[in-house]
Simulated assay, not measured.
Amino acid sequence: MSKSNTIYSDLKNDMNPVTWISKYRQNSIPYLTVMVLFYHLIGFVIMIIGSIIVDFVVNNYTEPTIPLTGISVIFAGPFEESIFFGIPFYLTGNNLVTLAGGIIWATLHVLNTPSVQANSLAYLTWLFVTPSIFASLRTWISGKGWFAIISHSIWNLIFFAAGCTNGEFACRIFNEKDFLIDIAYITTSVVFILLTYFLFLRYENKVISKSVK
């Protein structure tokens, strides 16, 4: 079988929902990029369908926005990926525990709103990110957690650029009124990345120890 046929076969297998909590069959950067885009495409379709349902069910619904900065969206990647995916996986080595972390992560997106009321929750954001649970989960368990972090931050930055360009919110790199908020974003992200790295080393040592026995 040719290399292109092998890649096609592996992609077809990995896109099958039956495999969505297992490792990818390949973990090259181009392969992972295709899979991330695949899950984002599913999220986009679900969001479009969901918007029709939400508009029908929730009176006077408008998708909320919260103040964002370039710093906050970039460092949300390492913070969220570490705390909800990397740390659960390297602590337990269990795919289902990591999946649970991802479910919590996605669900919290519904609270991306300045007002916690039924007609102002971020339903569409939640619907869009839900398939990304599997993208992050599978990337971490496939040994490419760093790619999950980088792709998450890049995707956030793309949406931030699109939103501020369209006037949905101000195009701010940092918080001019309270720069301590951005410092907190950076600091907590670094702390959780370091914690994830130490847990990774611990996890790898356990794997090596088991293979030696």
Rank of each mutant, 00 (worst) to 15 (best):
I49Y: 12
G50T: 02
I52C: 01
I52V: 15
I53C: 03
I53W: 14
F56C: 01
V57K: 06
N60V: 05
Y61A: 02
L68Y: 09
G70M: 12
G70L: 10
I71V: 15
S72N: 12
S72T: 13
V73K: 10
I74T: 04
A76T: 08
G77A: 02
G77D: 06
P78A: 03
F79L: 15
E80S: 06
E81N: 07
G86F: 04
F89S: 01
Y90V: 02
Y90H: 09
Y90W: 11
L91A: 02
N94V: 01
N94R: 00
N95D: 14
T98W: 06
G101Q: 07
G102S: 06
I103P: 02
I103N: 04
I104A: 08
I104E: 05
V110I: 15
V110Y: 08
V110E: 00
L111I: 11
P114D: 05
V116P: 04
Q117W: 01
A118G: 04
S120Q: 13
L121S: 06
A122Q: 05
W126E: 09
L127I: 05
F128I: 10
F128L: 13
V129N: 10
T130Y: 13
P131A: 03
P131G: 02
S132M: 13
I133E: 01
R138D: 07
T139Y: 12
W140Y: 15
I141G: 00
G145L: 03
W146Y: 11
A148R: 10
H152K: 12
I154M: 07
N156K: 01
F159I: 06
F160C: 07
A161E: 02
A162C: 00
